[in-house]
């Protein structure tokens, strides 16, 4: 596992100015992510997940608090971080081929042509799109497009991979495949993964740890370790009684939070 890629979120709050007033998207959030960890962040729609993620990745500056990556304050998009957005259709360059979509960040980093070509091919092989090099994104299905976005993140060789509800808009089967792909990439590359989702099952199935956010004004409702075996399988893992316990607990947490409670429910014992 990598020894870099630790994240620290300290009292992070974000308020958007809207017209004459303002909208408080995040009240105050603090948590730490160890290098090489896979953390899922789950919370209801509109609770500020995307906002949190943009603050993490340096796309947005928080109103209060700070984000530290390996001890350094994040003020702009850091080099060791890759982001996969929810709107895959809008985050790929439609005028560039799949090859160039994956290769452009490397070109920006100054990676020589040959090396770039190799990295692009390897990343696309990894996501099972070795044949699609010359295609354009809009010629691909939604699931394939999101694979291209993931390949782009992989080829970038980040230390932290941040994903914002990446599978919210793909069909169930593709989604299962992509979830396993994320687990595999995490295990193969040893990167830190922050995976945002509103889907409770997905967060428990994927994560080593689940951060449950309350609804707005947002705080961390609970920080839950997922004590499921490391080798996960769509059918057998989801059939485990422990999986059911955890997902029920997270579900209750969110219901609890929606009723306005600030204190977490007691944890289920393993």
């Amino acid at each position: 596992m990598a020894d870099t890629g630790t994240l620290s979120v300290r009292d992070l709050g974000k308020t958007y100015p809207v017209g004459t007033g303002e909208v408080e998207a995040i009240r105050s959030i603090s948590f730490d992510v160890r290098a090489g960890e896979l953390v899922c962040i789950v919370g209801p729609s509109g609770c500020g997940k995307t906002t949190l993620l943009k603050c993490l990745s340096g796309l947005l500056s928080p109103t209060t608090g700070s984000v530290l990556l390996d001890g350094q304050a994040v003020l702009a998009p850091p080099e060791k971080m890759a982001v996969v957005f929810q709107e895959y259709g809008r985050s790929l360059y439609p005028w560039l081929s799949v090859r160039d979509n994956v290769g452009l960040p490397l070109k920006a980093r100054g990676v020589p042509r040959d090396e770039r070509e190799q990295a692009v091919r390897a990343a696309l092989e990894e996501v099972g799109l070795g044949q699609a090099l010359a295609s354009f994104p809009w010629q691909l299905s939604g699931g394939m497009q999101q694979r291209v976005a993931i390949a782009r993140a992989i080829a970038y060789q980040p230390e932290v991979l941040v994903m914002d509800e990446p599978f919210a808009a793909v069909d169930a089967q593709t989604r299962a495949d992509l979830e396993d792909l994320v687990r595999r990439v995490w295990q193969d590359l040893g990167v830190t993964v922050i995976f945002v989702t509103h889907d409770i099952d997905e967060s428990v199935y994927l994560g080593e740890r689940v951060l449950v956010l309350s609804s707005s004004p947002t705080v961390v409702q609970e920080d839950l370790a997922v004590d499921l075996p490391a080798a996960r399988d769509q059918i057998s893992t989801r059939a485990l009684p422990r999986f059911t316990e955890l997902r029920t607990h997270v579900h209750e947490q969110i219901q609890h939070a929606k009723r306005g409670a600030r204190t977490p429910l007691p944890r289920p014992t393993s």
Binding site: L59, P77, E79, M81, V83, S91, L104, P105, A108, R109
Partner: peptide
């Protein structure tokens, strides 16, 4: 979204 993608990948 494209602008943010480009920013996060430091395409400048």
């Amino acid at each position: 979204v494209l602008t943010e993608t480009s920013r996060s990948y430091r395409v400048r």
